[in-house]
């Protein structure tokens, strides 16, 4: 499972999302879009919008910290294992 999170430093939901994955021991890559312009454009392209966080789980795009949507995708992954 490949997880990428697009964040800004002042966004509490980005922190909550990272803590969520940390608590489950799931690894992810984080891109701070305020530092990385290319990734900022990529995020807008992928999600079609400009709200953070954007979470990409194996190409499935989740906008905001939508716990239910994340859990659904992760459960599938855990079941597949």
């Amino acid at each position: 499972m490949n997880i990428e999170i697009y964040t800004t430093p002042t966004c509490i939901w980005c922190k909550t999302a990272k803590e969520y994955f940390d608590s489950k021991g799931i690894e992810y890559k984080e891109y701070d879009v305020t530092e990385d312009n290319e990734k900022a454009l990529e995020m807008v392209e992928k999600s079609g919008q400009r709200g953070v966080p954007v979470i990409d789980i194996d190409g499935n795009i989740i906008i905001g910290f939508d716990k239910e949507a994340i859990e659904e995708l992760i459960t599938e992954f855990i079941e597949d294992e």
Binding site: T8, C11, V33, A40, R50, V52
Partner: peptide, 16 residues
């Protein structure tokens, strides 16, 4: 237009 130039959170999305 939420997320598409409308936001409820400056701390999250102000940067854009």
């Amino acid at each position: 237009f939420v997320g598409k130039a409308i936001s409820y959170c400056v701390s999250c999305d102000g940067f854009f």
